[in-house]
Design a protein around this nucleic acid. Sequence first.
DNA 1: CGGGATCCGAGACGATACTG
DNA 2: CAGTATCGTCTCGGATCCCG
Lengths: 130, 130
Amino acid sequence: MTGMEESFADLAFDVFARDCPSRPTFEHITGRWGSIALMALDEGPMRFGVLRRRVEGVSEKMLSQTLQALERDGFVLRDVVTTIPPRVEYSLTPLGIETARRLRGLIDFLEGRMPEVLKAQEDYDSAKDA
Amino acid sequence: MTGMEESFADLAFDVFARDCPSRPTFEHITGRWGSIALMALDEGPMRFGVLRRRVEGVSEKMLSQTLQALERDGFVLRDVVTTIPPRVEYSLTPLGIETARRLRGLIDFLEGRMPEVLKAQEDYDSAKDA
DNA sequence: CGGGATCCGAGACGATACTG
DNA sequence: CAGTATCGTCTCGGATCCCG
């Protein structure tokens, strides 16, 4: 069954592999701005400017880049109305919605454990000073 | 109840806030090497060299940095045996184990959807060429 | 208003050499 | 073996200007 094993290995993505194609996509949704953009759009469709104000601290350039990556991966829809001034509405695809939900689960879990994390950091730092 | 609301806001971490203290930690566990290191250590305790070979493509420096960050945050334990040559075993804390499990859920989900993502990327790229 | 183009600094990252 | 130190490269990300 060597043939089957090989074809299965082709279909199953190996996170540990240097060139696993899921790595870039994973970085898009967990990255500095990608994750927050997904969280924001999970609240509902939003125009660029509103999204920009919702995601504190992001520059126009980075938000634009982030949204393009998420759109290319199929997580985000971009709806353009070519008026003057232009309107561009962003929303989540079904895939984007489910991804955002799972991401929120991870984030909520982490935030619930943050007191524990902050305590660990204190211990680590004070142990290092000594 | 203004006082209560404010103190609650202090305890509840706001992902959208520029200075949310959970952001750095989130990046440690979802980052390029952090996520893979957690996946690897979820398979069991491991020595530095073994871990390095398991996480394909990581340099000694980056693995060392990554593990230090994860240890400081309380996800990873570092057990040193000062012999010659030295032995250093890394393992997950209970917090690290639960985090790794949830991370694996997200990654498995994403990998299951990768065909969909790859398709979206093709469509996006071919639409752009035209 | 929603970006694209450009420039620049800061930090990530890898390769190599060295130490306990 | 398990790092640390140093260096050079390269990408990320912000600031600014511009255009439809």
